[in-house]
Structures are given as structure tokens and as C-alpha cells.
Design a protein around this nucleic acid. Structure first.
Length: 830
RNA sequence: GCCGAGGUGGCGGAACUGGCAGACGCGCAGGACUCAAAAUCCUGUGGCCGCAAGGUCAUGCGGGUUCGACCCCCGCCCUCGGCACCA
């Protein structure tokens, strides 16, 4: 008997599958109705130098199981893979090791490819995409141009997050609590001119779209919080003895009578406008200056201890009661949210109260839970009865809110926390932004003659002219020096031959934009390109798009909850408005695989030395065992610690299967010597369970029921060939290599197990005739009796009285009551 | 502080709609095979009492609802993840 030599089995089938091209989607699928097709998508990897880690293996195995399952069910399955290869890690590695990023990426991709093939993932390799391939980023640039033409891209000088180590700006999403999410360096604040994408124009749609998605609740919550919708009102406060008004945004207009002072952000334009009227303008100017140079993080980090300066001699008028109230500036008011100014109601807002207490400002309660006026020690942020509020006294605050907004001539307004997406990076390794700057056209654009037919983007950004679509892709020039300059400019700015160009509009001299796009650009739409990866004329053929979009199952890590997944939804919604895609949401169902932790229960990291290398595990136990093990560990969405020893159990299982099939199929078929009806029942029950478990992604319990079923197969002298085959068919989605070897070589099938039909459970045979019923006496389980399905209460009571173990409990006692749930339980109360 | 998820043996985890808690696997103990070991196979394995039959306690803690609660309700504690001066 041959031992289970997984190494040579896996090698053999890997080659064979590749040659047979078994996983390529049939052309006919692209004209099939959507209901015949399934789109099973992985978050494509960033091909780092470290290679695949066990977390990739987890998600990719799950999607592979689903793909194989649906193929066997007769669906056309699109299960593609590609490379998210622009961005900082490749570039930083390239700089450190003095190799061009293009070469680094190529090398890493070939290593990743080898690893993915080793694991037997059933990707359609013919549709690979690579975000750094000009044939791909041509369309990334094309989408940018469409956004620009619609006026959704604009250039703006503003304070931004700057990573001094990576020498580039970061988006808000990439700056985690003031720390660069790539390298962990503290982010600085810089004023820079940046390309911005108007994601805020889609804030409402991005929020509303979440409701219909089958996504993990926490991801939806994270996106909702990030978008951060607040409903409130905009109210103007006049500045006494000046022509100025300060608008504020508040979510609590009902508390306006309690607004005892006004606070503006240190960046607020009113500060310079009032410079001559403020008595302490020097002090105010200094405070404003210092705050301006602090990063957001620094503004918060100082223990939330409030700081601020009063604008001496300046008073605003509270429009509700005409009282004059002082105006302050403080950095707890942020310049970019709302109007950059607030009305402070210290009685009903914790932050305002902290500030008022520190600077001795008046606190006037205007809402009382019981209608009595009490000055509490604590802030009261709840609802109640209005007091100190003029003609609104005695009213419920919620009811009065709209009336009060009218009374002070305010306007209802909605605000979002979401800010526009900072879209330029001062780095080399990214998509060039396809715009040129032309001085001549700048003046034309400012004049805005209709005859010149400027696009919205060109009018919005005078001087910036689009590179015509026919000139795309605008290729990233090959350079020797791609290190970041540190001059706040991209290394591309040094490439004079590339920068200096001709304006496509007027033919005069022009300069190219030298910043590049952020890493997220390429991953915003890659799932579309898979469907039509070789189309030279269009981003995607719309008929093909309809045959596979939206994605049925999307699997990947939760770390992309507000980055990739928000950006991709934004672009998709834009493409929906442009009628490029049919649906307003790209991913119907999202699954986040849980982190695989080190055996110490901590996150895997090089510094902890607890990283598991899948290559080594494959070498030791085989890809099938690794796949099985990772799926068996626990629910796909939970974080799970790796256990060095656990994998042996899955290897043993496969080894036993190997031995069993060798024995069953090598000699004369064994005679069936026993009754197999119990086995048949178990078989069909298992088949039903495995089928359901795959559809609900409960792979751990699917594998455990296969183990139970197999134990029963081993118990019998033999099982009919039909069952032996169906068992391997079920196993094949989890452990494809050993299954294929048994299927073709041990059992002698000609065609691949992957194209055998998924077996169908026989409900009749799965039904259990005799069942075990729990017997409780006075609510305590005292034993079980087996009975026919559907037995009556009376029959069961009779059975209890004749059961040696149970009758002693009941005998000679009066039965008060019997609780009976058919086929489940009988509870006798004495 | 706010939002979300969760807490079950030595470990990873099962438990369907409120109905035999601990499936399956690891580990551990004992046994078989072996000169021996590894591998493999078999048996046992939540705690406590008991030779045993059996009893009793047990799903973070404290209450409640129910014939019956890991599951539902109320109040705590803890862990993980996210957000965090957003007016």
C-alpha cells in the first residue's frame, strides 16, 4: 500500500490542472443570465516581499471552497485574482535595496503566484489584473478624468497630514490617530496644494446604501460613524458694532437661550478681520498661530484640557434673547467641521461646560428634566422641559426645536464628518494624474467663454487641462532616481523631459501634474476589470458587466472597513451615475475573515517571532492539511490562535481517508456484510449539513461532520461505491489534491472530481425513524428513552414506567403534570 | 466616554426556534504493536463525592421569567475591535 505522499500528489495535480485550464470561466458565461453565474471575490493581495501569510490562506481557502462548491452545483463561477502593486511598501523596499520597484513587484508577484498555486486555489489565472500595468492603470486614469470632468476633483491648498518618513501626504483614512498607518511615524501638519476627490458629494448615498447590504454589522457601523451624519441648524450671530456675522452649526438649536458665549476655531477668518478691534489681538494672534501648526492629534492629545483666548472687546448677540455674549477662540473647535464656529451651551454640553468652568463663563440651564430650574453640578444632555427660554418656557424641547430655529431665523442643515479624499501623493510609485497645467488656458478658463467648451473640472481648476483619453495610459516615466525628494514634490518633478509638455488644448507649453495617485485608486475598481480584463476599447463591456456584477461574496480583512471599501463604493456609485455599471453597490455580501493570531494569542509579527510561514506548513503537512486546518480552527469571522499541534489532527484525517480508499479499491470489492440503513441515514444527514454549512460559511462544522461520517464508513466492512464517491466529492472542495488523486487514480474516474455534480441529499433516507428522547423528572434530566418518531405522550409514559433506570423516579408517585414536546423531550412533574 | 462583538473543559471550538451542555479536533492518561522509540490503532478524559450504580456542582458574576435558560429580561464585571473635542 502506498503511503500518503502529499508532496508528489499535490505537485502532480497542480501541473495537471494548470495544463487543463480547468478554472477558466467559459465564454458563454458572459452572455448567460446573472442567475446562472456566481462571482466569488477575494481582496487581491499586495505582493509584499514577505510572501503570503496564513491570514491570506484563511480567506482565500474560504472563497476557494465556495467557488468549487458552486462550480459543482453547475454555476459559472468567476473566481479571479490579481495584484495591488502600487504603493509605498514596494517603493520603500526598492529604495532600501536599490532595485527598481517594477522589478521588486515582478519578483514578488511570481513568488505569490507560486504560493497560491501550491495551495490549490482555483483561480482563473487568465484574467489576472495588475494595478501597475499601464493597460490597467489606463482605466484608473480614465475614471479620474471622468471624475474631474464632472467637477468631482479639485485642487486645494490646505493643512494636510504629512508623514516625514514616507515624505508624502496621507488621507484622513490613512492617518490613524495621527500615526502613519504604513510606517508608524507621527504625522505632521503641513499646508500643501492637493488634489481632492469630492467623496462628500456622495455622503448621503454612501450612508443610505449600507442598509441593504449583507455585510458584517460592525463594518457598516464603522462606515456610518466615519460618514458621521448630524442633523441640526445653521444660525447667524451678529457681532456687535461691526458688519460681521458668525454662522454656527448646532445639533441643539433647542438650547440656544443657554448659549452664553461663542467659540471660533483658531483658523477662523473672522480673527484676522477683527484684528484691529480686538484689544488683545497680539495674544489672540499668537494662540491662533500656535494652534494652526499643531496636528489634529496634538490638539487633542493634551489630556483634553481646554485652552483658548477671549477676543477682548468683541461681543456677539444671541439671536434668541438679544443678550451680548463674549467671543472666544479655542482649538477644541475644528476649522473644517460645520462652520468652524460654535455657540457654546455650557449647561448642556460637556465640552462647553469644561471650557466655561475653566474660564469662568456663565452657565445658564435651559432644559430641565422636571421643569424646575436647578443649576446642577453635572451637565444635562438629555431631553426635558424648556426653561429660561422666553416664550418657549414649559414646552418640550424636541417639539419646540423647529419653532426655535424659525424664531432665530436659522436654517435646518445636515453636516457630515466625512471629508473629501486627499488624492495626491508626493511619491514615484503610483498612477500619474493625467492633467497638465497651462498658463495660457488658465486665463481662458477664468473668462469661461462657452465657445471654448471647458469641462466642469477645467473651470473649477483654472489652468488644469485634461490629457485626452486617446493619450491614455499616461505612462509613469522610467527614472533612475525615484527616492522621495522631501521637497514636498514628487520625484517626477525632477524629470524635466516628462514634466514639460504641450498643452493638448492650445498647443502651448504646459507642465504635467507630478503628484501620483494614492494606492487605493487601483483597488477601487479592480473587481470590474476581471470581468473584461483584456478589453482595449472600454473599461468594461456593459453586457459582460451585467452577467457577473454585483459580486456575490467578497472576502477579506476588516482593516479595509473605511479605506478600500468606502473608496470603492464611492467610485462604484459614480460609475453607476455614469451608467458604466448596472448596480449602485458593488459587493452584495461581505465577509471578514478573523485574524489568525500567533500560538501565544497575540497578533503575528516579526518582532514577536510568532509568524507562521505557510510554505513551511505546506512542506510539512501538505496544502490539503493546511487548508483543512485553517477552516477547522473555528468560525471564519472569529480571531483564532494558531496551534502548532492542531494541524496534525487534520493530517491524520486525510491519512486515514487515503488508507481507507486504497484498501477499498485496490482489491476485489468487499462484500457488504451488514445492514447499512443507519449509515445511509447518517450519510444523507451529513450531506445536507455540509451543503448548508458551505452556503452559510460554517466550514468548521462541515469538516467535523465529515469526520463523523468517515468514522462510520471505517466501521463498516464496505460502503456502496456511490457513497464512497459522494464522500470524495464533498471532501474535494476542502482538500482538492487528495480528492482528485483518489477520484481519478484510486477510484478510476476519467474526469476531474471538480466537474462531478455536487451530490443531492435524499430527504427520505435522511429522516430518522427511531429517536432518542430526553426524559426529565421535575425539570431535571434523568435519562433517555428511544422511541419511534412521533410517539405519543402516553406511549412515552408507558416506556418510562418500564425503563429500569427511570421507573424508580416515578413509581408510586402521583403525576401532577406532563410537559411534552413531540420528538424532543418529556418532562414529568410529580 | 460612546458604538459594536464576545465571555462554554487544560486548549481551539460544538449546541438548529428555549429542550440530553461540552459534538469534532488538539492535548493528556492508560493499553495494543515494537528489543526499544517514533508513527499508527484502541479505550478513557468538565469539577467534586463514590469501588460502583449513582449523586452533586457547572456555560464571567448576581437576580428574574419558565416545567425547562449557554440561549430571553434586569443589574454588574471582564476581554477584544472601532470611534473619540465632529458642536
Amino acid at each position: 500500500m502506498k503511503p500518503y505522499d502529499f508532496g508528489s500528489i499535490e505537485r502532480k495535480w497542480r501541473k495537471s490542472w494548470e495544463k487543463e485550464k480547468l478554472f477558466e470561466v467559459k465564454q458563454s458565461a458572459f452572455s448567460s443570465p446573472r442567475s446562472k453565474n456566481k462571482y466569488i471575490l477575494d481582496m487581491f493581495p499586495y505582493p509584499s516581499g514577505d510572501g503570503l501569510h496564513v491570514g491570506h490562506v484563511e480567506g482565500y481557502t474560504a472563497s476557494d471552497i465556495i467557488s468549487r462548491y458552486y462550480r459543482m452545483r453547475g454555476f459559472n463561477v468567476l473566481h479571479p485574482i490579481g495584484w495591488d502593486a502600487f504603493g509605498l511598501p514596494a517603493e520603500n523596499y526598492a529604495i532600501k535595496n536599490k532595485v527598481h520597484p517594477e522589478i521588486v513587484v515582478k519578483k514578488n508577484i511570481s513568488n505569490f503566484t507560486r504560493q497560491l498555486k501550491d495551495l490549490g486555489f482555483s483561480y482563473d489565472w487568465s484574467r489576472q489584473v495588475n494595478t501597475t500595468d499601464p493597460n490597467y492603470y489606463k482605466w484608473t486614469q480614465w475614471i479620474f478624468l471622468q471624475l474631474f470632468k464632472e467637477g468631482l476633483a479639485y485642487e486645494k491648498e490646505m493643512p494636510v497630514n504629512w508623514c516625514p518618513k514616507d515624505k508624502t501626504v496621507l488621507s484622513d483614512e490613512e492617518s490613524e490617530n495621527g500615526i502613519c498607518d504604513r510606517c508608524g511615524t507621527k504625522v505632521e501638519r503641513k499646508n500643501l496644494k492637493q488634489w481632492m476627490l469630492k467623496i462628500t458629494a456622495y455622503a448621503d448615498k454612501l450612508l443610505d446604501g449600507l442598509d441593504g447590504l449583507n455585510w458584517p454589522e460592525r463594518v457598516k457601523t464603522m462606515q456610518r460613524n466615519w460618514i458621521g451624519k448630524s442633523e441640526g441648524a445653521r444660525i447667524n450671530f451678529k457681532i456687535q458694532n461691526t458688519k460681521y456675522e458668525i454662522p454656527v452649526f448646532t445639533t441643539r438649536p433647542d438650547t440656544i437661550f443657554g448659549a452664553t458665549y461663542l467659540v471660533v476655531a483658531p483658523e477662523h477668518p473672522i480673527i484676522s478681520k477683527l484684528k484691529d478691534k480686538v484689544k488683545n489681538s497680539k495674544e489672540v494672534g499668537k494662540y491662533s498661530e500656535v494652534s494652526r501648526n499643531k496636528s489634529d492629534q496634538e490638539r487633542v492629545s493634551e489630556g483634553k484640557e481646554k485652552t483658548g483666548v477671549g477676543l477682548e472687546g468683541i461681543y456677539a448677540v444671541n439671536p434668541s434673547n438679544g443678550k451680548k455674549i463674549p467671543v472666544w477662540t479655542a482649538d477644541y473647535v475644528l476649522p473644517y467641521y460645520g462652520t468652524g464656529a460654535i455657540m457654546a451651551v455650557p449647561a448642556h454640553d460637556q465640552r462647553d461646560r469644561d471650557f466655561a468652568v475653566k474660564f469662568n463663563l456663565p452657565i445658564v440651564p435651559v432644559i430641565s428634566p422636571d421643569g424646575k430650574i436647578t443649576v446642577d453640578e453635572e451637565v444635562y444632555e438629555g431631553d426635558g422641559i424648556l426653561v429660561n427660554s422666553g416664550k418657549f418656557d414649559g414646552k418640550n424641547n424636541r417639539d419646540a426645536t423647529p419653532l426655535m430655529i424659525d424664531f432665530v431665523k436659522g436654517k435646518s442643515e445636515v453636516q457630515f464628518k466625512l471629508r473629501d479624499w486627499i488624492f495626491s501623493r508626493q511619491r514615484y510609485w503610483g498612477e500619474p494624474i493625467p492633467l497638465v497645467f497651462c498658463e495660457h488656458c488658465k486665463s481662458d478658463a477664468k473668462l469661461n467663454k462657452p465657445s471654448l467648451k471647458f469641462s466642469k473640472g477645467e473651470l473649477l481648476n483654472p489652468g488644469w487641462i485634461i490629457v485626452p483619453e486617446s493619450e491614455l495610459p499616461l505612462k509613469l516615466p522610467k527614472v533612475k532616481n525615484y527616492e522621495p525628494t522631501g521637497t514636498l514634490q514628487s520625484p517626477l518633478a525632477e524629470v524635466k523631459s516628462w514634466v514639460n509638455t504641450i498643452c493638448p488644448r492650445c498647443g502651448g507649453p504646459a507642465k504635467r501634474e507630478t503628484n501620483t495617485m494614492p494606492q487605493w485608486a487601483g483597488s477601487c475598481w479592480y473587481y470590474l476589470r476581471y470581468i473584461d480584463s483584456k478589453n482595449k476599447n472600454k473599461i468594461i463591456d456593459s453586457k459582460k458587466e451585467k452577467s457577473f456584477m454585483p459580486v456575490d461574496v467578497y472576502i477579506g480583512g476588516v482593516e479595509h472597513a473605511v479605506l478600500h471599501l468606502l473608496y470603492a463604493r464611492f467610485w462604484h456609485k459614480f460609475l453607476y451615475d455614469k451608467k458604466v455599471v448596472r448596480d449602485s453597490e458593488p459587493f452584495t455580501r461581505l465577509v471578514n475573515q478573523g485574524l489568525i493570531l500567533g500560538s501565544d494569542g497575540e497578533k503575528m509579527s516579526k518582532s514577536r517571532g510568532n509568524v507562521v510561514n505557510p510554505d513551511e506548513t505546506v512542506k510539512k503537512f501538505g496544502a490539503d492539511s493546511l487548508r483543512m486546518y485553517e477552516m477547522f480552527l473555528g468560525p471564519i469571522e472569529d480571531p483564532k490562535p494558531w496551534n502548532e499541534k492542531g494541524i496534525i489532527g487534520n493530517w491524520r484525517f486525510l491519512n486515514r481517508i487515503w488508507i481507507y480508499y486504497q484498501a477499498q479499491f485496490s482489491k476485489q470489492p468487499k462484500r457488504q456484510s451488514e445492514d447499512i440503513s443507519e449509515f445511509e441515514r447518517l450519510f444523507h444527514q451529513t450531506l445536507k449539513k455540509v451543503t448548508e454549512d458551505i452556503e452559510t460559511l460554517h466550514f468548521n462544522t462541515a469538516i467535523s461532520s465529515l469526520m463523523i461520517l468517515f468514522k462510520d464508513m471505517e466501521r463498516l466492512s464496505s460502503v456502496p461505491k456511490k457513497y464512497a464517491s459522494d464522500f470524495i466529492a464533498m471532501l474535494s472542495v476542502f482538500a482538492p489534491f487528495i480528492s482528485e488523486e483518489i477520484w481519478r487514480n484510486v477510484m478510476g474516474n476519467k474526469k476531474s472530481v471538480m466537474f462531478s455534480a455536487w451530490p443531492k441529499a435524499d430527504e427520505k433516507k435522511a429522516r430518522q425513524e427511531s429517536i432518542t428522547i430526553a426524559v426529565q423528572i421535575n425539570g431535571r434530566t434523568r435519562g433517555t428513552i428511544s422511541a419511534k418518531k412521533g410517539s405519543s405522550k402516553e406511549d412515552l409514559l408507558k416506556a418510562i414506567l418500564s425503563d429500569t433506570g427511570l421507573k424508580s423516579y416515578v413509581e408510586g408517585k402521583a403525576i401532577k403534570r406532563v410537559v411534552f414536546v413531540p420528538d424532543k423531550i418529556i418532562n414529568v412533574l410529580l
